[in-house]
Structure formats: C-alpha cells, structure tokens
Amino acid sequence: MAAGGDHGSPDSYRSPLASRYASPEMCFVFSDRYKFRTWRQLWLWLAEAEQTLGLPITDEQIQEMKSNLENIDFKMAAEEEKRLRHDVMAHVHTFGHCCPKAAGIIHLGATSCYVGDNTDLIILRNALDLLLPKLARVISRLADFAKERASLPTLGFTHFQPAQLTTVGKRCCLWIQDLCMDLQNLKRVRDDLRFRGVKGTTGTQASFLQLFEGDDHKVEQLDKMVTEKAGFKRAFIITGQTYTRKVDIEVLSVLASLGASVHKICTDIRLLANLKEMEEPFEKQQIGSSAMPYKRNPMRSERCCSLARHLMTLVMDPLQTASVQWFERTLDDSANRRICLAEAFLTADTILNTLQNISEGLVVYPKVIERRIRQELPFMATENIIMAMVKAGGSRQDCHEKIRVLSQQAASVVKQEGGDNDLIERIQVDAYFSPIHSQLDHLLDPSSFTGRASQQVQRFLEEEVYPLLKPYESVMKVKAELCL
C-alpha cells in the first residue's frame, strides 16, 4: 500500500493539533497551500530580480507567473513527485505547466533550498508574528487579574506546605514575570531571523556568478533584492546548502521555554482548584465526569500541561538535527523538520489560546482563602504575639514557653481530632496574655502579614508589564474561544 493518505478522510490519521486544537490561522501558515504558494512567490521574486539585473526574462513571463501564483494543481504535483521522487522539481514542473512561456526560467540558477529553506524562514517569521500578540493578550488578562487582587491576602506555599502570606495578585505576578520573559525572547528570536537568500547549491553562489558572467556586484544585488522582497532586513552571508540548523534550535528553545512557563502556571491553577481557592472557567453544560456528576475538573489547565510537556520535548529534535548536518548538509534534517517545526508552533498556539481562555474567566473564592488563612495564621502570628507581650512588660522566655504549650495543644486538636485551630481562643482565655487581649485582632490582621506584596504588584505592572504590552494595544480586544 502506498504511503500517505487522504487526510480529510475519517479513515486516515490526522494530527489532533490540526484537527482538534490549533487555530485556523496557525494551521494555514503550515498548510501545503501556504507552503507551495510561497515557493511560487519566491520563484517570481527571483525572476523579477534577475530581470532587473539584466537576464533575458520578459515582462510577459513575469506576468504569467504572477497570474498563476494561486493556480496550484495539487493532484498534478503529487503525481509528479511520485514520478520524480523530488518535491521541488515536482512543483517546478507543475508551475511550468500553467506558465508555459515562463517554464524555462522558473528556478533559474537556484537549488531546492532556495524555495525550501527560504519558505521555512518566512513561515517561522509569520508563525512567530501570530504567537506574539496571543502571548501579549494572556499577559494582559493576567495583569488585569493581578491588579484587581493585588491586596487580597492568601496563604503562600513553599514545598506545598503553608508559608508566609502573600497576595493573590502577587502570586499571579510570578506567572506574568515568566511570560514577559517569554514574550521578550519570542520577539528577540523573531527579529534575529535572517533570510537564507540566493546562495546556490553549497552556499557559494557559483551558479549565479556564472549567470551574471562573473559580476560579483550583481550577485550581491540579486541576494539583497530577493531578501528585501521577502520582507527581511538581512540575509546570511555564510550558508551551506541550507541555512544553519542552529536557527531551528533557537526558535524551538524559546517555544519550549514558553511551554515550561505555561505548565507551571496551569499546575498552580490545578492545585488551587483542589484547594477550592480558584477555578478555571466551567461552562453551564460542561460535564466533569461521566460517573461523578459533582466533579469540576480543571480540564483546560490539564490540557495545557499535557501539550506543554510535548512542546518542551520537541527542542531535542533540532538539537540532534543540527549535530548531524555533515559538511554542507545531509538530508537527516528533512523529514524531522517537516514534523517538529509545525508541531512546535501548533502546540504553542494551542496552549496560548487555551491559557487566554482560562485567564479571561478565572474565578476566585475569597471566603475559602480566608478560612485557610484562619487555619494557619495563628501559628504564624506567634512571633508577633511574643513581641507584643514583651512590649507590655512580659518575659520573652516565659511567653515563648506559654505559646509553645498552647500551640501544641491547638495542633493536637487540628491533627488528632480534625478540629479547627483554636490557638487564639486559648490565648484569649489565658490570664497571662490579658495585657494584649485587646491587640489580638490587630495582630491577626492578614494584611499585616503580606509585606509589600501589593506595592510590588503595582510597581511591576507599571514599570515592566504595561510598557512591554504597549506595541500590542491594537490587538488586545480579541477574545479566545474554545470549541473543545
């Protein structure tokens, strides 16, 4: 049975990233139509530049190519590739079939990587351009969430054990800070992308030097003109047959890092959902379990974690691919890159769409948070109580021993009897502590235990987050809708 299948058929496997999760716009960027249309555009740009620099290419040939950029006979191309065992030459023939007058000058002087690699770089750039505003929107939604809850005390956790208090907004800023680093890295790697350009079979530009009869300047002009037509500021000066596969490492490393950030955020949300302090959106008709109707599973956060793990592992592909590119190139890269580049971007696209949807509907339960604080705060307040007693004339050592005994009794009630923490009640009825009984409410005010959390939130948002989001103001209103 021949390899390949009808990918629109229910009898043929289709990647869930495309069929179930990723956005239509990201799927289109990695589609065959987008790819092969870009090949034709690159052939047109090459012909236009070659004509401008004096090669015998007519206006009629150029116009014929322009008129057929979208006229792609995919069936013919597939048949040609089956016959020739070469995808680029299959599309040269297919393009030439609908451009008979231009057929002889299509791909003039070029090698397969002229269309293959340059198209990949265009796709990487455009895919990054799709991700950047999506990530900015996630940051914006979380920034709104953090600002609104900047002063809401909550129990902090280290080692997932109760620690000092923080605020809900401050905790959210930990998430935002990681995503801001990801946004900066995505922008950097996007701006650092260079075009492969017009380089020939081993990167020496020998074929173009021959076409222009040894004119170095025209060869350099050709490279520059096509690079500018493709919208790049610069091209690699040095290439082998391909652009260095280190570029793929750079791009997928940034995406993998984004995956790590999203995994951490969504894990926190899942843990908070278990504590009943916070939940992701839950639709009115949504079913959490087929057997347990009360369940409210954090399905979206779980999906993000599941896909983020996949995204983090994909960076190993370009690392290994770059390491086995012998001399000017081997074909070890080809099949692998067809999979890992598309999957990385479709996965990143999915987790950003999902995280935006989550961040637009996060639900906080202040009463649950308050109750958990009441359970733990008495123990945390013991040092403040000791200091207040010393100020009232008591002995630190005597007070410490009193607190120690009462704390152990209260802990026994919590752990052995399943009761509430009654340390404060014990202190309130103990005559030894009568000098500070009137101060206990103040000493137990949760806001006095959150330090500068709310001020940190305000400063972080104003100095770091809002300036970073400013270039994306025009796209901030787009909502994230999930079908599944």
Score class of each variant (00 low, 15 high):
Ala273Pro: 01
Leu331Phe: 09
Ala2Pro: 10
Thr321Glu: 01
Met316Trp: 13
Phe449Arg: 05
Phe157Cys: 02
Gly259Pro: 03
Glu277Phe: 01
Asp144Met: 15
Gln51Leu: 09
Arg309Asp: 04
Cys304Tyr: 02
Val115His: 03
Glu328Trp: 01
Leu44Asp: 03
Ile287Asn: 03
Asn118Lys: 00
Asp430Thr: 15
Met316Phe: 08
Val226Cys: 08
Ile287Ala: 07
Thr347Cys: 13
Thr382Ala: 10
Cys266Trp: 06
Thr158Trp: 02
Gly259Tyr: 01
Ile436Met: 07
Lys35Trp: 01
Lys284Tyr: 13
Val168Pro: 04
Pro471Met: 15
Ala392Asp: 07
Ala235Cys: 13
Ser151Tyr: 09
Glu48Thr: 08
Ala22Ser: 15
Thr350His: 14
Ile238Ser: 06
Phe74Thr: 15
Arg137Phe: 08
Leu179Gly: 05
Ile265Trp: 10
Lys470Ile: 07
Thr382Gln: 08
Arg171Glu: 05
Val262Gly: 08
Asn336Val: 13
Ala146Trp: 06
Lys479Val: 10
Met89Cys: 06
Ser140Ala: 13
Glu60Ile: 12
Ala103Trp: 09
Val88Arg: 00
Lys246Asn: 02
Lys391Pro: 01
Phe212Met: 11
Phe327Ile: 06
His400Pro: 01
Gln408Val: 08
Gln61Ala: 10
Phe236Thr: 05
Ala256Tyr: 02
Glu417Lys: 10
Lys82Leu: 14
Thr154Lys: 01
Ala77Arg: 01
Arg404Ser: 08
Lys295Arg: 02
Leu440Thr: 02
His263Asp: 01
Asn421Thr: 06
Phe208Lys: 03
Leu130Lys: 12
Phe449Glu: 03
Arg296Tyr: 04
Pro133Tyr: 15
Val262Trp: 05
Ala342Thr: 14
Ser23Phe: 08
Asp191Phe: 08
Gly214Lys: 09
Ser438Glu: 07
Glu50Trp: 04
Gln408Asn: 14
Thr38Arg: 03
Gln455Gly: 08
Glu462Ser: 13
Ser257Lys: 05
Glu370Tyr: 11
Lys276Thr: 05
Lys134Cys: 13
Gly197Gln: 06
Asn185Pro: 06
Ala260Gln: 15
Gly169Ser: 01
Ser140Tyr: 15
Thr239Phe: 03
Asp182Cys: 00
Thr450Trp: 08
Thr267Cys: 08
Cys305Arg: 04
Asp430Tyr: 04
Leu331Val: 08
Cys340Phe: 13
Pro471Arg: 15
Glu277Asn: 01
Phe145Ser: 07
Glu481Gln: 15
Asp32Val: 11
Asp349Phe: 03
Leu179Arg: 03
Ile139Cys: 08
Pro24Glu: 10
Val429Gly: 14
Met278Thr: 05
Ile369Gly: 06
Gly4Ala: 15
Thr201Val: 07
Thr204Leu: 02
Ile424Asn: 07
